[in-house]
């Protein structure tokens, strides 16, 4: 891009308020608009490490990272739909932040997993077929109304928090680093969903009815999150992964506390069989992927 002219109408020219000292307060450097990119692990950093051979997952770790990455990716795709449709503008921004966090986690996990097949995050996101995805059914569930989305967020965030909290101690340094970044963000997602569970449950008769219904719709997919299989058992023994079954007690206890405060019951609904980790998905995933992948697949090999 050409250097912008330094006139007051130039694209990125000086944004001056034209009033001497405007915005200054007691301490001259105090500002509410000072912006910085911050300093944290980015998906691009992981992709770079993978490309340069600094980090390379084992086949097992890559499979495991796919699961976590796909969960986050499908959820981000779902949450992104709320932007411009939320109940209030403030919530457009809040759900947008959560979607962006999830997308960031997805990109990190997928970038890492891709290393084992010499691929990229986009190869995995856009050019795998439905049965090659490893997301659990919970993440694939439609947004429904705001209460359904909050119910899904509630389960997801409490599950992910327990998972990432433990994963920070993984013997796989990259998984541990991604988890260390993610756990703080997911901690906030937990807070966001808990706030809303309390408000919807304790708000009006209608909101309470909808909250109860939302939890009922989502709860059949909770069980799948805590199922172990050979892969995670193998990885857990090596100290690289966390056995999902080991998260369940804390999840039950902590979600139980919020539900109790909201005067809600854990829904008494039969569990769905799941199967996402083996590539057996809900009816919804095909549509999600069709929409997500359509443009990229129209132009295979193109760069964007």
């Amino acid at each position: 891009m050409t250097a912008p002219e330094q006139t007051e109408t130039a694209g990125h020219g000086d944004i001056s308020v034209g009033v001497a000292g405007a915005g200054a307060s007691g301490d001259g450097s105090a500002s509410a608009t000072r912006i910085t990119p911050g300093n944290a692990l980015r998906p691009e950093d992981i992709a770079l490490e993978v490309r340069t051979g600094l980090a390379r997952p084992t086949g097992d770790v890559a499979e495991y990272a796919l699961r976590l990455g796909d969960d986050a990716l499908i959820l981000a795709q779902r949450l992104g739909h709320w932007i411009s449709r939320a109940p209030e503008l403030e919530e457009d921004v809040a759900l947008g932040n959560i979607a962006l966090d999830q997308l960031g986690h997805a990109r990190s996990f997928l970038s890492y997993a891709a290393g084992v097949w010499d691929k990229t995050e986009d190869d995995l996101a856009y050019f795998r077929r439905e049965h090659e995805f490893r997301s659990a059914h919970l993440f694939e569930q439609p947004n429904g109304d705001f209460a359904v989305t909050i119910a899904r967020q509630f389960v997801v965030s409490y599950y992910q928090f327990e998972l990432y909290r433990r994963l920070t101690e993984s013997t796989d340094a990259t998984l541990a680093a991604i988890a260390a970044k993610a756990v703080k963000e997911v901690d906030y997602h937990r807070d966001h969903s808990a706030q809303w569970v309390l408000r919807l449950a304790g708000g009006t008769d209608e909101s309470r009815k909808r909250m109860i219904h939302g939890l009922k719709l989502i709860w059949p997919y909770v069980g799948e999150l805590f199922e172990d299989d050979e892969l995670v058992t193998r990885l857990a023994e090596a100290g690289a992964a966390v056995e999902p079954s080991s998260l369940e007690a804390d999840f039950d206890r902590l979600t139980g506390e919020v539900l109790k405060e909201a005067e809600l019951e854990v829904p008494d609904v039969p569990a769905a069989p799941g199967g996402g980790r083996r590539g057996k998905h809900s009816e919804h995933l095909g549509y999600v992927l069709a929409e997500m992948q359509v443009l990229a697949r129209e132009h295979p090999g193109a760069s964007w």
């Binding site: 997805a106 929409e291 132009h299 964007w304």
Partner: peptide, 21 residues
């Protein structure tokens, strides 16, 4: 947003539309 052709573009577009809110 849902059809952005790369994950990086998806993140950028999401952040931009969110900024507009």
């Amino acid at each position: 947003i849902s059809r952005a052709p790369s994950l990086k573009r998806k993140a950028i577009l999401m952040a931009k539309v969110q900024d507009e809110a």
